[in-house]
Structure formats: structure tokens, C-alpha cells
Design a protein around this nucleic acid. Structure first.
Lengths: 152, 152
DNA sequence: AAAGTTATGTTATATTGTAACAATTATTTT
DNA sequence: AAAATAATTGTTACAATATAACATAACTTT
């Protein structure tokens, strides 16, 4: 995330694109799913499932763990969010339009998660996988440390 | 893992090196810790904490979750094992001597986990991190898919 | 409208991981 | 060797994360 960034635009773009993709794909962005997606986009931190559960309760009094996990499953299948494996948490995907692999930079201090394309890394990785004769289905590259803003 | 590999040698090396490093470092490779390390090295699959708990019970009747998690913490601190974040599981580290980053190739079929150095990937990653001005403390690169043996 | 599909409600439970404090064992200091 | 200190383990309880299974409701297609 650049220091200066208009977050409401950021969220609006994500929600609009998600809605559009759902229409194209003939799948339903139901109220619950949209609310979960909005809650995930509240900031650039990774959010835990049970935090989402607490946050959605004012909107969906009947919400239970399954409510959240089902919405998360859907949003992941559609590629709208990523699971941060090393945190058991979730973040909104910054680039719904172009298919891409995710390199996640997770700051220990501000807890922001930045998603980067990192084409060169992915290229080197593809080579390495070829060498290993390994057919990749999914890739998780998660780096923990300190982001640019937090290392002054 | 190469198809042909003498696993008992593989395990022996890991255990011997671990014991030696513990002596050098002045830390204790206690019975429990050694047993957990051996159980992790039983094969090249990632092992779950509660599976380890079941497997250690014949040897340590009093074993409880904390018993396992403490041993796992120790073994990780010493760099003898890795946590596979995307599986909530653990594997033995194949290279105790040279410090290195881990690229983990996780086969969905045979469930073997192969650890590779992947210097080119790490180099590209270092460049990307520099570009992002991100100071890395830990790196998890986990690829799920089909290994060479399972793609015939 | 009926049938089929998709989504949600609901209860219960499985899985993964930690906190806190007591008891024991190992190591260092006297 | 005895005492003091540190490290490890025992033990109980519980927190946090995630899924299964089945009932009900809502949409879609015919």
C-alpha cells in the first residue's frame, strides 16, 4: 500500500469488480457474501474468521461460524480474497482482473499485508518447478517482516 | 526426495546432526525432543501435532498437547524442523548445516514434502523485497501440486 | 406451480494451539 | 556436596480455528 491511498476508492473498486464478475459467472454475490467481502476490505490487515463473525453480527444477528466460513469459501473460489496461511487469516485480493500469483508481504508492526506481482520471482519459481518436474496447483509465498513505512 | 533413497540413513543423519548441534549450542536434546524429532522423520510427509501426540503416547504415556507443542517449538527454534503453514503440520529440515530458506513442494497425491534450496528464486525474491523496501524476518514458500513421481 | 439447485439456519463437534501453575530435573554457584 | 538458579516436564483447563450434518429457505429452470 502506498502511504497515500484513498481507501474508499480501493474498496469500491474491489466490490464493484466482484459484483461484475459474479454476474459474468452466473454466481450470486448474496448479502452475506458482500458484507463479508466489505468487512475484509475494511483495511489492509489480514482478518481472522472469528473477528469477521463478531463484526458481522450487528448486520446478521443469526451469524454462526459456518456463515462466515461458507462466505469465505465462496470468496476464495471466486478469487476475491486470499487466505494468509501463516496467519490463519484473510485479505482482499487487489487484482481481480488479471490472473496472478500472490506474493504477500506481511508487516509485523503495522500488520498491513501488501500483495505484489513479483513477476521475476514467479518466473524463477516456474523454472525451479520445471527442474523439479513438479506440477503446481497453488502457490503461497508469504514473507513476514517490516514494511517500508515501519522501518524508518 | 529421489525415488531411491535410503531413508534410515536420511533419518540417522538428521538425528546425529541435531544431537551435535545441540551440544555445540549448549541446549538439551531431551528424550521427548528426540522422540518427537524421530517421529517427524518417520517419513517425508508433513505430520500434524495431534498425530505426533498419538504416536508418542506408547513411549510417553503422560504426553499431552503441551508436551508436543513444546518439543515442536524447541525443534523449530533450533532449525531442525519446518512448520508447513498451509497444512498446519511439520517436517524435518533436510539441511541442518547450511543456513537456507525453504521452498516446499507439497504433493497432493503421495503427500511427500520436498525441500529445495532454489537459489534463483531466493535471489529474485531478495531483489523484489529490496524494491519493496521490506525487511524480511521469515519466508514461507509453499507450492501444492503433483510431484515428479506422481505425474506419470 | 413443481422440481431441482443453491444458499442459509442451526446444532453439535472436530481440530489446532495456549495459558498458568505445580513438580521435577539439570546446571551453576557457593 | 549443598544450595540456588534455570530449564524442562506434568497437569488442568481452555481458547481459537474449522467442519459435519441435516433442516429450512430462497432462487432458477422447466
Amino acid at each position: 500500500m502506498p502511504e497515500i491511498h484513498n481507501h474508499s476508492t480501493c474498496v469500491q473498486t474491489a466490490l464493484t469488480q466482484a459484483a461484475q464478475l459474479c454476474t459474468e459467472r452466473g454466481v450470486q454475490l448474496t448479502t452475506i457474501r458482500q458484507q463479508v467481502l466489505e468487512l475484509i476490505w475494511a483495511d489492509h490487515h489480514a482478518v481472522k474468521a472469528y473477528d469477521l463473525l463478531e463484526r458481522i453480527k450487528p448486520l446478521q444477528a443469526a451469524a454462526k461460524p459456518a456463515t462466515i466460513y461458507r462466505a469465505l469459501d465462496f470468496l476464495r473460489e471466486q478469487g476475491f480474497i486470499h487466505r494468509v496461511e501463516s496467519l490463519n487469516a484473510f485479505i482482499g485480493c487487489c487484482d481481480l482482473k488479471t490472473a496472478h500469483e500472490q506474493l504477500l508481504l506481511i508487516c509485523k508492526k503495522c500488520e498491513n499485508v501488501e500483495e505484489r506481482h513479483a513477476d521475476l520471482v514467479m518466473q524463477a519459481l516456474a523454472q525451479e518447478l520445471q527442474k523439479a518436474k513438479f506440477i503446481a496447483h497453488s502457490k503461497a509465498i508469504e514473507i513476514h517482516g517490516l514494511c517500508a513505512d515501519c522501518t524508518q
